[in-house]
Amino acid sequence: MSITILAFAAVSTSYKVSQVRKCESWVFLGGLYTLGALSAGITFASQVHNLHFPVSIWVMGLGSGALGLSSLLCFLRALKMGGSLSLANIIVQMSLCVPIIYAVCFLGEKLTVMRVVGLALFVVFLVLLNEPAKPSKEES
């Protein structure tokens, strides 16, 4: 688990490093997705025996790819504009709220006490963000 923690922290930090070093976002993302595709391709080739791709999987995969790339571009742009890595990273991790809200609204899942507390803290976080932290040197 410690490797996972360090890896996730390193990936988030690499986004900020790419913006501080003024990397071309498209080239940086190209490198990221190329290695991701190679790794996922190797896993696919070694573990999957059913090569049938239903249309729904194509649609979901292609749509998710486009949405995920757009999300990363927005995140990189936010960091490029001088956004705080600590806060921007937390905001993006808050994306956990979306499938929870979707599941409660459309899949009929129950809103547990933990979820209510988590969402309430999210609202508090939004209120605290409304008067954002002191701008960093890059922003000023």
Binding site: L72, I91, S95, L129
Partner: peptide
């Protein structure tokens, strides 16, 4: 930048959904 970070959150959230 906060607006953009929230847009990134929403887009990533749709992928998770």
């Amino acid at each position: 930048w906060i607006g953009l970070a929230f847009l990134a959150m929403l887009l990533n959230g749709v992928v998770l959904a």
